[in-house]
Design a protein around this nucleic acid. Sequence first.
DNA 1: TACACGTGGGT
DNA 2: TACCCAAGTGT
Length: 363
Amino acid sequence: MTQEYLRDFNVTGFQESLVDWFLENQRELPWRESKDPYRVWVSEIMLQQTRVDTVIPYYQAFMREFPTLEALAEAEEDRILKAWEGLGYYSRVRNLQTAVREVVEKYEGTVPDTRKEISSLKGVGPYTAGAILSIAYGKPEPAVDGNVMRVLSRVFLIDEDIAKPATRKIFEGILYDLVSKKDPSSFNQGLMELGALICTPTSPGCLLCPVREYCRANEKGVQAELPIKTKKKKQTVKQMAAIVLRNEYGEVLIEKRPETGLLARLWQFPNIEITNENDQSQLLTKFLSEQFKVVAEVGPDIQHVEHVFSHLVWNITVFEGHIKERPNLESETRKWVSQSEIERYAFPVSHQKIIQQSLMTRV
DNA sequence: TACACGTGGGT
DNA sequence: TACCCAAGTGT
């Protein structure tokens, strides 16, 4: 199967052209200043499904706050979630900490250098394993991400659906033979860099491509038709009502989201899902009474926030409310916080917008 | 296997 | 506007 794609293919020529191009044209990025496995690891986790420009400032701040594997292992969860706030896919950072702790305990603080061991770490899948092994340890391992599938789909004229999990194995199979044994790091990064800068999803820059002479899609003029990727299903929409509830000290009520699932363990303003056209302020009053044991005066709605996720949409109507007393919540998951304290907690972007409008109006 | 899991930017 | 996309993984 693999050798079928590589028949009559100039492997050495492709490797050299790609690596030479990468060494000459690679972007200067903060995580390229060091081959420290921990730093490479953090960057790879952040870069999952996330743009380079978005990651850069997060990476720099994260490495300042958690410079070593041990520092991250010892950090409190609220600190790492705050460092990840706004990046999305928050299980990434919780899994990263779980994995880092395992490296400290089981591997004496040294990131393992075999695919079997590194893949057993939480949050390290086939791509990340290959990326760390090749970039940090110089091992000739495949690292198949979206860029690589796009580039190789074109180079080898592969019309399998890259949205299907099984398709990744085809590319891994090719890469075991194709990856440079001389400079696996530059080869793998070069493939991704090429996908990011030249071999882009729409209007690829074939005239500038260092490997166009090896590209079968370019030869046939069908590069715009590849890769094949089926569409994902449509998002569902949820109507929500949230409340900024103040006590007589000017503090606001926040709660911690559930341990698992969407936005797990981030903080939020109390909210409910609205299923029909009921009186939302009345439902909120009832909700606060039953769940928080507080008698609230719920005012009019003050804001509407749309939160678009990859798989669903929240339409949030935000209400304002007051209570006369200050009930003791005595809970780790429900707190009264002042305006200055609230900055220490990590919120979903939709609730950050609520904070900005309701609590930081004098910005 | 298919779907859950975030967010912001590009066209 | 409404998609689509971006250095994927867990279940």
